[in-house]
Simulated scan of single mutants.
Amino acid sequence: MMLSLIEGNQKFNYRIAGILIHDGKVLLHREKDQNVWALPGGRGEMMEEAQETIVREMKEEIGLEVNVERLVWIGETFGTYKGVRFHELGLYFLLRCTSKSKLLNTPRFCGIEGDAVDLVFEWFPIDQLPHTFYPAFAREGMKQLPMTIEHCIEKED
């Protein structure tokens, strides 16, 4: 069971995301019909450790085997997405690929999420991240990842 609660026009998500950097570029994704970019990941499942979630999500969505290096950010984000007010609690982990994959050198590729939502994945130079990459604390913090865990709160409204 994915950890997400909906009450009226409000939604709470528990999201686990991965920071995968290769050759000075970071992997981002977006839904095919949207222009909002994010770090790849997804919602945690009941009784699943957060590190297991991001390993599973990367394998399910793009077939990539990763190891978790460390937790970088705990993020609380408040805003509106697709007309729904949301509160998201996110854990952002630094990842490392466990093997060579052609995806590491493929500038843009597609993946699948859950109910067949098409995802677009793209490698972006860390110093040229899109303005539509959220959350903003990650967009700024990506330039120099903190050495200790940071707690970030972002209100997008």
Rank of each mutant, 00 (worst) to 15 (best):
R108W: 02
E52F: 08
V120S: 00
G75E: 14
R96I: 12
C97N: 13
D33C: 03
L119I: 11
L39S: 09
G42Y: 00
L103I: 08
R43C: 09
E122I: 03
D118T: 06
I54A: 10
Y81E: 15
G75L: 04
R56V: 02
E60D: 02
G63Y: 01
E69F: 14
F93P: 06
V66H: 00
N67V: 12
Y81D: 13
P107W: 01
F78I: 07
D115E: 07
I62V: 10
V68I: 12
K59N: 07
V55R: 06
K100L: 09
V68D: 00
E60R: 14
G114W: 04
V72F: 05
R108V: 13
S101K: 06
C97K: 09
I112M: 09
A116H: 15
E60K: 04
T53E: 02
C110A: 08
S99T: 14
M46S: 13
L71R: 10
F86C: 06
W37T: 12
R43H: 14
R85S: 10
L94H: 10
M46Y: 11
T77F: 14
F86M: 07
W73S: 03
Q51M: 03
E76T: 13
C97S: 06
L39I: 13
I74D: 05
F78G: 01
F78Y: 15
T106E: 05
F93G: 03
K100W: 09
G111M: 00
R70Q: 12
A116K: 07
E48R: 06
Q51R: 08
K100E: 09
V120F: 01
K59M: 04
G111F: 00
N105M: 04
M46P: 00
H87R: 08
E60N: 01
E76I: 10
R43E: 00
R70S: 03
G79H: 12
Q51C: 07
V72M: 07
W37D: 15
Y92I: 15
E69Q: 11
E45C: 04
Q34I: 09
C97W: 10
V72K: 01
K59R: 11
M58D: 04
E76P: 14
I112A: 00
M47L: 15
